[in-house]
């Protein structure tokens, strides 16, 4: 990823938080808000400007689930692994998605199209098991439904 304004972008963020104690997490939050994830170039820039070792930055980013190190996919698939969805077969759905897209949980497909995310309880346990694709909810999903749901998006022009 090459962003011409990267140094300036990070400078603004660092400026905003520079007097706060423990500002690394706030700075990283802002960087992720800006780019959708924390690219390595941005992590290096934060390291330089905050004078924090890169190793510490990656320790923090990999410790907290919130931070993404990869560009998010254009389509975000969230599978609920809350208790109800789990019991109603969500692990099968995850296995099917992994099989079809060849992607791990928390990762993005090589073509950058799909991002698979595991979430805990979407608040509609009566509809279990639940998948959301971007903001559309699919309820009582069966393993055999998965291929069709993915196909809906795979064939769509999704360049937003």
């Amino acid at each position: 990823m090459v962003v011409e304004t990267l140094t300036e972008d990070v400078k603004k963020v660092v400026e905003r938080w520079k007097d706060k104690e423990g500002n690394l997490i706030m700075v990283l939050h802002d960087v992720q808000d800006r780019y959708g994830y924390v690219p390595r170039e941005a992590a290096l820039e934060v390291s330089r400007q905050l004078n924090a070792p890169l190793a510490r930055i990656y320790e923090v980013m990999t410790f907290y689930n919130y931070f993404r190190l990869q560009a998010p996919g254009k389509v975000n698939i969230s599978v609920c692994l809350g208790t109800a969805c789990y019991l109603k077969g969500a692990p099968d759905l995850i296995a099917e998605i992994r099989h079809i897209l060849n992607v791990e949980e928390g990762k993005t497909t090589k073509d950058g199209k799909f991002h698979l995310q595991i979430v805990r309880c979407l608040g509609c346990c009566g509809l279990a098991p639940v998948i959301t694709v971007d903001h559309k909810v699919y309820s009582a999903v069966k393993r055999s439904d998965v291929v069709n749901i993915i196909a809906e998006y795979a064939n769509k022009d999704i360049d937003k």
Binding site: A43, A55, Y58, T62
Partner: peptide, 19 residues
């Protein structure tokens, strides 16, 4: 030196250089 760090958490925790 900060070559080694802990990456990730829980069962996935491992020693590795940054990233």
């Amino acid at each position: 030196v900060w070559a080694l760090s802990f990456i990730d958490r829980g069962f996935k925790t491992r020693i590795a250089p940054a990233g």
